[in-house]
Amino acid sequence: MITTKLNTKQIHITVPAGKRLISKAVVSLEQIKEALKNNTIVIIAGSTNGYVGEELLLAIDQIENFSRNTFHRGVTIGPGRKINANGAYFNTDIVIEKGKWIKEKTMFDLGEELGKGDIIVKGANAIDAERKVAGVQIRTPNLGPSGPMMQAAIGKRTEVIIPVGLEKRIFGSITEAASKVNDPHTDGMRMLPLTGTIVTELEAIEILTGASAELVAGGGIYGAEGGCWLAITGTEEQLYTVTELINSIIDEPAFGIE
């Protein structure tokens, strides 16, 4: 019996590089490719989703003047920082119908139209990677774009893909955290537990290379804040592919907001 020799390689991925890695994995998914031909894809505005939108619009040669730096709604920023709430793609979504970017539509226009075969890409603010559950912070009583998203996901069985970086990992259960912050006696934002096809850096490595990855350490300084150390296990060929992939994204610049 011939056994394949597996080796393990450790790599560090910054938060921006992780966003780029995740976006490349999402765009490579077979259901995304199929939906581009025959169905609708909705990418809801968000920082990680900006990378997904960029990769997908590049793939279909419709990038035009798209800027991921303004592709957001609610964001968490550092103390004293400000963002431009009037950017070109602020409060918008990317809607692609059978391979064509329909610029005038958002998630709010599509809650009742979407169904099986269609895909919604939604970022998250928290991830329980072990239980495969994400959490979305909610600022408004009408749930924002998460309202029509859930209408499509639950009511019509539209697939939800959740690109989310490991820097958003939490301890314990998302549902228990949601129960606490949604309590009538709690102040601040609410939380929506969300399930679907979750893609963190761990899933991204497997999707793109076939190797397996696990989180072994995190953090750093001087640009490495929030980054993660991954132990990646695979064949010699897979680890070579991992090295080439990481080298292609390792210098991804810090996220900029216009």
Rank of each mutant, 00 (worst) to 15 (best):
T4H: 10
N7Q: 11
N7D: 09
K9W: 08
Q10S: 08
I11L: 08
I13T: 09
T14C: 14
V15A: 13
K19R: 12
R20I: 05
E30Y: 07
E34I: 04
E34H: 06
N38V: 10
T40H: 00
I41H: 08
I44E: 07
I44H: 00
G46R: 07
G50H: 07
G53L: 03
G53P: 01
L58Y: 00
I60W: 05
N69K: 02
N69S: 07
F71K: 14
H72W: 06
G87V: 02
N91E: 08
T92W: 01
G99M: 07
I102R: 06
E104R: 12
E104L: 05
K116T: 13
G117V: 04
A124H: 05
A126Y: 08
A126F: 12
A134S: 09
N142W: 10
L143F: 11
P148A: 13
G155N: 11
T158V: 03
E167S: 11
K168H: 14
I174R: 00
A178Y: 00
V181D: 02
D183P: 01
R190C: 06
M191E: 01
I207Y: 06
L208K: 02
L215F: 10
G223F: 15
G227V: 02
W229Y: 03
T235I: 01
T243M: 00
N247V: 05
N247W: 03
I250F: 08
D251G: 06
G256L: 15
I257P: 10
